[in-house]
Each structure stands twice: as structure tokens, then as C-alpha cells.
């Protein structure tokens, strides 16, 4: 008999005590909620009629796909999650879920979300969802995150793809509008995550994650936040300037963008002590409101237009 057999006999069998809540935590529900919302907007602004059953199927598959990539991320990053206060209570670093269980869970959900979307809706959307999961789990988590300070800039593409997947689910093709939505989320990601990294840089340094404040310092990060916010405001207004979305969206994007820019300038100017931390926290908090509000306006316009068409 081999050594492996003896070894396996020596190990006590591990009985899982993971609850349903631990598996839900693997799906990163808070990230998933933003993914679902942006995907819903992508689906709703797409031209033509989508049957409600297909719409629900699409959103469900995109949500499960996003959750699957979250589980794969938690499987791979368990070692660094254990070192950061924000993530040390996740199911894998605490031992409530084993790495093998998280990996299996992530792979099974990835497979079912992609195949279900492909079979029931269309394969353009299915392929885009597969690419999104691959980009987040492999390109961002396994490669970029531990390698470069540009990790969240390039990796942000994964978080920006859900409205594109949803548009493809509705139309079977791609167009300029979903790409504009993609660009808005893409340029929103760096100021959002770097604001977080400014007041969590100790966490990232301890875990050896090369976030920009750790590698280039907080002042360089503040400048990058400001520059990306300027680009974000311009990109967010571009769908109006190019004539894709109307003036209500355009004016709202400029007002919200102005506020975001003001907070980014505040982050740039306040560099010491508690005011600097407060400025970073304010920008981080508002960035969530900013993205939500921008997409909510698009959703509201579609709903109002549908109601007016029905009763007008």
C-alpha cells in the first residue's frame, strides 16, 4: 500500500458545518446587488420588448454568475483575506467553508449560470457572462491583484460588464449604449476603490496587495483619484452629448458629477490626519450613491416613457 493511503487514513474526516448563510456570503451579496441593478438598467434600456420570464432568467443568471466569481475570488484569496480586517471574517479564512468547497461551489455556479443563460436566452450573452467570470476570477484575482497597482483599473472591466451582458441578453447583439454604460462603471471603479484603499491602506500593506496607496503613496493616489474623476464626469455626460440619452439624464449626470468632483478635490486637498480620512470616506460613500443615482435615472426614464406610452 502506498504512503498516500496511510496518510489519508491518518487524517480525521472533516465534517462540514457550513450553513446556508456561509454559502450566501461566498456570493458577495452586496457586490451582487450592484451587479443586478446595473444589469437591470442595461436590460431595460435595450430596444425592443423582452418577455418578463426571459428578463428574470437573464438577471438571475447574471446575478448567479457574479456570485460564482465572488466565490472563486474568496477561494483563491483566502490567504490574504485572513490578513485584512475587512475580510478576515469571510467563510474560507475562518474555516467555516473549506477552500475545496468554495472552489467547487464557484465552478458549479459558473457552469450553470453560463449554460442556462446560453440555452434559455442567447449565446452572445452566455459567452459574455463566461468572459466576465473568467476576467474577474482569473485575470483580476489570480493575476492582476497581487501583481500591479493597476489591478483595480484593468480588473474593473469585470465589474463594468454586467449591463453589457444584459443588453446582449435582450438584443442578441452589442451597440454603443451598453459600451457607454461599461465605460461609466469602468472609470468609476478607480476613484471608488482608491478612496477605500486610502483609509484601508494598512490592511492592503499587511496582506502584500500592491494597491496604489501602498505602492505609490497616498498623495499620488489622491492625484489619480482626481484625474479619474474628471474623466468619469466627462464619460458619464457623453451619452447625453452624443444624443443617446436625453437632457434629464445629462443635467443629472453633470450635477452628480459636480458633487463627485468636489469630493475628489476635497480628497486631493486634505492630506493629513482625520480630515484626510474623513474626505476619503465621504468620497467612497458618495461614489456608491453616484453610480446608483446615475443608473436609477436611466431606469426611471424608461419606466416613465413606458407609462406615458401606455396611458398617453
Amino acid at each position: 500500500m502506498s504512503i498516500v493511503d496511510n496518510h489519508s487514513l491518518a487524517l480525521p474526516p472533516r465534517i462540514s458545518e457550513a450553513g446556508v448563510g456561509d454559502y450566501i456570503a461566498l456570493l458577495k451579496p452586496r457586490v451582487m446587488s450592484l451587479v443586478v441593478f446595473t444589469a437591470l438598467v442595461g436590460l431595460m434600456i435595450a430596444p425592443g420588448h423582452v418577455h418578463p420570464v426571459l428578463a428574470i432568467t437573464s438577471i438571475l443568471c447574471i446575478a448567479v454568475g457574479a456570485g460564482a466569481s465572488g466565490a472563486l475570488n474568496m477561494w483563491y484569496d483566502a490567504d490574504i483575506d485572513a490578513l485584512m480586517s475587512r475580510t478576515s471574517n469571510r467563510p474560507v479564512p475562518t474555516g467555516r467553508v473549506t477552500p475545496q468547497e468554495a472552489l467547487t461551489f464557484g465552478l458549479i455556479l459558473s457552469f450553470f449560470s453560463v449554460v442556462t443563460l446560453g440555452i434559455l436566452v442567447n449565446w452572445v450573452a452566455g459567452a459574455l457572462l463566461a468572459f466576465t467570470i473568467f476576467f474577474y476570477a482569473v485575470v483580476y484575482t489570480m493575476w492582476l491583484k497581487r501583481w500591479t497597482a493597476q489591478n483595480i483599473v484593468i480588473g474593473g472591466a469585470a465589474g463594468a460588464l454586467p449591463p453589457v451582458v444584459a443588453w446582449a441578453a435582450a438584443t442578441g447583439s452589442l451597440s454603443v449604449e451598453p459600451i457607454l454604460l461599461f465605460l461609466i462603471i469602468f472609470f468609476w471603479t478607480p476613484p471608488h476603490f482608491w478612496a477605500l484603499a486610502l483609509f484601508r491602506s494598512g490592511d492592503y500593506a499587511r496582506a502584500g496587495v500592491p494597491m496604489l496607496p501602498v505602492v505609490a503613496g497616498p498623495d499620488a493616489t489622491r492625484l489619480q483619484i482626481l484625474l479619474y474623476t474628471i474623466v468619469l464626469v466627462a464619460v458619464a455626460a457623453s451619452p447625453w452629448a452624443l444624443g443617446y440619452f436625453d437632457a434629464v439624464y445629462g443635467v443629472s449626470s453633470l450635477v452628480l458629477g459636480g458633487w463627485m468632483l468636489m469630493l475628489a478635490i476635497n480628497v486631493y486637498r486634505r492630506r493629513e490626519g482625520a480630515p484626510a480620512l474623513r474626505a476619503a470616506r465621504q468620497l467612497f460613500g458618495f461614489s456608491l450613491v453616484y453610480l446608483f443615482a446615475l443608473f436609477a435615472i436611466l431606469l426611471l426614464e424608461v419606466v416613465v416613457a413606458a407609462v406615458l406610452a401606455q396611458f398617453g
Binding site: 426571459l54 432568467t57 438571475l60
Partner: peptide
């Protein structure tokens, strides 16, 4: 889900 989509799209869904 598969049953509902089959009703919506017909048996040719697969």
C-alpha cells in the same frame, strides 16, 4: 425556469 422558458419560447428552445 426551464419549464417557464419552454412555455414562452416553445419546445424549440433547445
Amino acid at each position: 425556469l426551464f419549464f417557464a422558458v419552454t412555455l414562452v419560447k416553445g419546445p424549440a428552445v433547445l
